[in-house]
Design a protein around this nucleic acid. Structure first.
Lengths: 262, 262
DNA sequence: CTATACTGTATATACAATATACATTTACTG
DNA sequence: CAGTAAATGTATATTGTATATACAGTATAG
């Protein structure tokens, strides 16, 4: 038991400090004044600033200032700015997970997941600016993975196949989220009345993308299809890609089931 | 023609300055001393630094220093650090594109593309740290898109469907590239002999991921499948996902062809 | 030849993250 | 209850960042 305890303490303390904080691992303080600040207060203040002015606006001094404290006071709660970013990320990823429902089609639920992720990107455009450092380790992220595993509970697949699908879907969700976000911000920026037809870089590309150097891209640039100057609402575009991925998953599961039966 | 000229200048100069530079758009200097520096020299120096010490190590002063010039000299060639990042990105994306080959299966070629992208991430791990600001606009990126359109030349699809597929494949390539990169760096970091079995965060997660809060993830964490402590080489994992996407594309193309024939 | 435009540089500004030392406040221990 | 240990928030300083500005030198066009 002693060894167990030591081992436990060790393996937990080997976690990146931000990850440890996200799990609520803090050494309890027995003496000294009660902290006036708190990690949630700091994280929420940072999120508010990022929502309003972007991730670049989140500096330790700005966060502290918005709370009425000095810059260095924050370092009594987190060890570095990196911690803060981890905590911000985990906080906004904590989306409500729909309760298990008996006959719900798995395709619907995976779509629900992707659009929920996109929603996070739209609510918090800075989300995509936080670099991914590795495998998800924080509780908010893991709850979402747990959800996706629940969806695939009855698939005739092993754990690794399921994890591959989680990876596939979540990668696509991130991509879609980033694109949606950029689209949103472009719309917000180009909402001025005259900026409609000549907006974007279509004209410039039409000069630069020559038919000899870019034989296959050239017609798409000329027609304006590349720069989306013509119909084709992007939401359909992203849904379209998702349907292809789900088709691919479905095909694999069916094939596996077929092989299992015979 | 006058108006044309004016319009041309306008639309080109509306491009982000880094993008303009990537197309070689610079106002030619007629007087004054010849520049000792040049954009390629600056960009290559920056790439070297990033390759060696990561993107964070690329500062204007460090780049200038490595070239034997002062920080501010760089601003005679680029307008901001953002330009430099755009140029770095475009430079390393300029991968050799295989010549068109008659009977080559499209699936093979798409895989070739994805692994080529992954190669870029492995050669230049900082690639994934450069945020994507929007639609690709620089020549290196567009050449790759041209390649993918070439692969789909004979697909019975319209331009938008093809662009959707380009988006789908390139998004996945980026995801795979990021993961491969992180894997590589983890291997490099954990290559020390004792770091094999206890390496990573498996032990910590086994304590934190409780069966009641994470009913579906719990068994994967316990078995070590989640933290990859057990077999399952990730290269197969990523190939696996790609095959699913290609299955989804194939399924769609077949369906479309079938509908077209009847 | 000279005015012009361009080069590289020196200096300065305004931030950034964070290390360190300190006064203050609290609560556990004897 | 007293005293000590620990924790908090702050002030200050260090180092590093991007970049604005002004300037001295240089090569070219007229």
């Amino acid at each position: 038991m002693d060894r167990d305890h030591a081992k436990n303490g060790d393996s937990l303390s080997q976690l990146p400090s931000g990850v440890a904080l996200s799990w609520g691992i803090v050494k309890p303080s027995r003496r000294g004044p009660k902290g006036e600040l708190s990690i949630p207060k700091i994280v929420n203040a940072a999120i508010e600033i990022a929502d309003r002015d972007g991730l670049a606006a989140v500096s330790m001094s700005r966060v502290a200032q918005s709370l009425g404290f000095t810059t260095m006071s924050l370092y009594r709660y987190i060890t570095s700015k990196e911690d803060l970013l981890v905590l911000m990320q985990d906080t906004i990823c904590n989306i409500p997970i729909p309760p298990e429902e008996a006959g719900k089609p798995w395709r619907e639920e995976m779509k629900e997941y992707v659009w929920a992720c996109v929603g996070v990107f739209q609510k918090h455009p800075w989300f995509g600016d936080i670099p991914i450092t590795g495998v998800p380790l924080t509780p908010g992220n893991l709850l979402v993975i747990d959800w996706m595993l629940r969806v695939m509970k009855d698939f005739p697949l092993n754990d690794f196949e399921k994890m591959s699908f989680v990876l596939l879907i979540s990668s696509y969700a991130r991509s879609v989220g980033l694109i949606s976000r950029d689209m949103d911000s472009a719309v917000r920026a180009g909402a001025s009345p005259e900026a409609f037809s000549g907006f974007g870089y279509g004209d410039a590309l039409r000069q630069l993308v020559s038919p000899d150097r870019f034989p296959n891209l050239h017609p798409l640039v000329q027609s304006g299809a590349y720069t989306e100057e013509v119909e084709n609402p992007i939401s359909n575009d992203l849904e379209f890609g998702l349907e292809r991925i789900l088709d691919g998953i479905e095909h694999y599961v069916n094939e596996k089931q077929r092989l299992g039966r015979q």
